[in-house]
Design a protein around this nucleic acid. Structure first.
Ligand code: SF4
Ligand code: SF4
Lengths: 136, 136
DNA sequence: ATTAATTACTACCTTTAAGTAGTAATATAA
DNA sequence: TTATATTACTACTTAAAGGTAGTAATTAAT
């Protein structure tokens, strides 16, 4: 049970950005601070920009800043952009189950999954702000 | 939140085997019934055999049968063999968090994860027997 | 203008999971 | 003993995720 690397990176980046009061962050700085490969990070940043979470300015003194209030960026939205959401998946595959009957594991699998999904939908970067205790 | 295809296949196969009272199942039959690519399935079966879950006999009338009582085959064991367990992973990566403090999402992420893991550890194929309502 | 610092884009490389192909080994039955 | 039905093994191919390299575009400072 694990998000993909790209999602973890995105969350780390955005959580860290929301954590600090610097108004602008450079790819270089984020890469070093958060230990994420520079080139890979820049691609993620571009995607986060296209998704409307952050704005970027190029050139000297350039960097990234949030494009909207932190409470409007839900964790779920981030995972969606990273192509990392899988709702309603049977633990044995997809579309396997005949409707009506459920195997004994169904609830124990789908309930906790739903809890996590709800959490992702209900929490925003605002919630993470000042609360992500990174080492770096 | 999703197991890898190989794990899903393995669960489907074993759940189905435990579901039917045929004493032996062939790769061909399982492949057709469960809609799993034949060649891929045979490799999975070999692994399940090496893991000690099933026995195989080759040649005419050959096939696969369980190697031990269903209650001794835990879901978790199957996922372990399929290399699909990830305990104690932070939602932002690994080894990131400074000890002692936790971010606001930690519990909402790790608690449900733990529930699922416990379920995997506590339930066996015996539990799935006669309870997996497959279409096929 | 020139230079330096930055993001954006395009294309490639590597690794891992998923899937396929061919053949060898084994067991049964005719 | 030959044919047939099966699993086991080895090697390849494909697809997707993760990661790298080089260069173009943009901005600001000098
Ligand atoms: S009931 Fe069991 S087999 Fe059916 S969808 Fe739920 S987990 Fe899958
Ligand atoms: S507290 Fe938050 S950042 Fe730290 S390990 Fe838990 S989920 Fe990750």
């Amino acid at each position: 049970m694990k998000l993909k690397a790209t999602s973890e990176y995105a969350l780390r980046i955005l959580a860290h950005m929301s954590n600090t009061n610097e108004d602008s962050h450079t790819a270089k700085g984020l890469s070093q601070t958060l230990n994420i490969p520079y080139k890979y990070l820049t691609r993620i940043m571009t995607n986060l920009g296209k998704a409307g979470f952050i704005n970027s300015t190029r050139g000297k003194n350039g960097g990234f800043i949030f494009a909207k209030p932190l409470e409007e960026i839900k964790i779920y939205d981030i995972l969606e952009v990273m192509n990392d959401v899988n709702e309603d998946v049977c633990l044995m595959g997809e579309g396997l189950c005949s409707q009506g009957e459920h195997c004994v594991l169904h609830e124990s699998w789908s309930k906790p999954k739903q809890l996590i999904e709800e959490m992702f939908k209900n929490s925003s970067l605002k919630d993470l702000q000042k609360s992500a205790p990174f080492k770096a």
